[in-house]
């Protein structure tokens, strides 16, 4: 564990809590892509099956349980409790266009052909692109609530911090996981446009609106 990874994990946790609180407090999931949340739940489910097979640390196990529980709680709020506020008309990204390539890629490029490892690899590839339905929704409506933009920023910052963590681990532990690094870089790049608008607009107190 190093400071970059810890900060990354904290950003990840903050993102999830911000999203849950936003939906709970406003009693609405307007502007939130349920499809992205389905993909994230799938990411955690496929990645954290190792919860039953490997023990890394208490921190590791607790965080995995939190990510799993919160992702299903988010799905419950969107698709059951506050279903009436779910903006399905704007949540039209075809997730099979992400799922199918991720399945194929995880069968082609993996560390090991064991079921748990293939699920891990799939989860890494899927996480890289899981935010696309949400970004697609924002681009369709041309705007995002300030709180939604905070959520997206924290979620993007998490993987960006992991990149610094990987560089640090490469030099201090000679540890490198090529699959996670390449997917993590792609994941961060997908947020680049958003980061730019967040920093130039939201942090200056303006609304998050895409340029016309």
């Amino acid at each position: 564990m190093n400071i970059f990874r810890l900060l990354g994990d904290i950003c990840h946790l903050v993102a999830i809590i911000v999203l849950l609180l936003k939906i709970w407090k406003t009693r609405s999931c307007a502007g939130i892509s349920g499809k992205s949340q389905i993909l994230f739940a799938l990411v955690y489910t496929t990645r954290y099956v190792d919860l039953f097979f490997t023990y890394v640390s208490l921190y590791n196990s607790v965080m995995k349980v939190i990510f799993l529980a919160s992702s299903y709680a988010t799905l419950y709020l969107i698709y059951v409790k506050f279903k009436a506020t779910y903006d399905f008309n704007h949540d039209t990204f075809r997730i099979e266009f992400l799922l199918i390539p991720c399945v194929i890629l995880s069968l082609l490029i993996t560390h090991d052909y064991s079921p748990v490892e293939l699920l891990w690899t799939f989860s890494i590839y899927l996480e890289a692109v899981a935010i696309l339905p949400q970004l697609f929704m924002v681009s369709k409506t041309g705007e995002a609530e300030t709180i939604t933009s905070h959520y997206l920023f924290a979620l993007g910052a998490y993987r960006a911090l992991y990149i610094v963590n990987w560089i640090y681990r490469y030099y201090t532990e000679s540890f490198i996981d090529g699959i996670a690094v390449v997917a993590g870089i792609i994941q961060t790049i997908l947020y680049a446009d958003f980061f730019y608008l967040y920093i130039t607009k939201v942090l200056k107190g303006k609304d998050f609106k895409l340029p016309a």
Binding site: D112, Y162, N165, A180
Partner: peptide, 10 residues
Amino acid sequence: LDTTVGHDEL
């Protein structure tokens, strides 16, 4: 380089 399988990250 440690390329053994085993993921300690989240």
